[in-house]
Design a protein around this nucleic acid. Structure first.
Lengths: 148, 148
DNA sequence: AATGTGGGTTGTGTTTTCCAACTTGGTGAT
DNA sequence: ATCACCAAGTTGGAAAACACAACCCACATT
């Protein structure tokens, strides 16, 4: 870090410290699709095996995924999302929506069907009033809120 | 990429190719706070100057930010979000919510006030029916939808 | 004349990542 | 019993990315 830096206190940065490295969010994506095995995650993401090992260990250490033994002889494991990991799927949905709109406007690679019967088109709203929410629409307050 | 890999077609992966490298989302965060100057972005993120230059160029090349000359003598630039960049702020909001809940449960570093008067507590909902949406709740369809 | 400012670029290490090949403890087929 | 195969990693060596201080340039200020 440059010695004159004074990074903003920020939950975005703190979350990215846990899941912001290359491949981590794609691992969570695979688990959200129900993929559980090491080799399948390699195959579906393109991560190299050593890096995948290190990402899985870090996600596990931070309570985002869980490793479960499904065979004793030989010892074999599979991976699952924890409740905290399931919550991170919201991030995937919003990233997917942006990519669908801006990079694949005519044919989204994947659609998720919602319980209402329609294809999910995720929108971020304020939990209190239900209307659309977006950073920048109003001014921030708190320890990390400086605007210069 | 390992030669047996066959990465899933996926808008999440495609979006992360544009903004998933270290610092890129924090640059967008700074612009969403109204910070415009190179040195301020360095100061508030902790990115090194050379890497920041490369991130800014890439984000600009992909239409997420815009560089604007605000002085001719000497030549000076400042950075702004494009409409596509503003849409990416949804991702920040959802990352922030996760970090607030899981890493700072008692004192979120930043609060954004919504037009309804309350602090924004972002929720991802289905754009059709308005109810909560989450990847994994139903099964995916499309080219990238395999579940093994 | 000296210092400061904004937006970079350069040089030189250090750290990460990449990828094939290998390992380990087993199973099933010949 | 030997051979191939499987899953879940680990290892070694090369390539790429990153970090950071120092420098640069065209001004403006003191």
């Amino acid at each position: 870090m440059p010695k004159d830096a004074d990074p903003r206190e920020c939950s975005v940065a703190d979350t990215l410290d846990l899941v912001g490295e290359r491949w981590s969010l794609l691992v969570i994506r695979e688990l959200s699709y129900g993929v559980r095995r090491f080799d399948q995650i390699v195959h579906n993401t393109g991560a190299s095996r050593d890096i995948l090992t290190s990402r899985l260990r870090k996600l596990e250490a931070n309570g985002i995924i869980r490793r479960e033994r499904y065979s004793d002889h030989p010892v074999r494991y599979e991976y699952h999302l924890t409740p905290a990991g399931v919550e991170l799927c919201d991030v995937l949905l919003v990233l997917m929506r942006w990519g669908d709109r801006h990079l694949h406007p005519d044919d989204p690679p994947v659609r998720w069907q919602h319980s209402c019967g329609e294809t999910v088109s995720p929108v971020v709203v304020c939990g209190h009033c239900g209307k659309e929410a977006r950073v920048g629409a109003h001014s921030p307050t708190g320890r990390g809120a400086r605007t210069s």
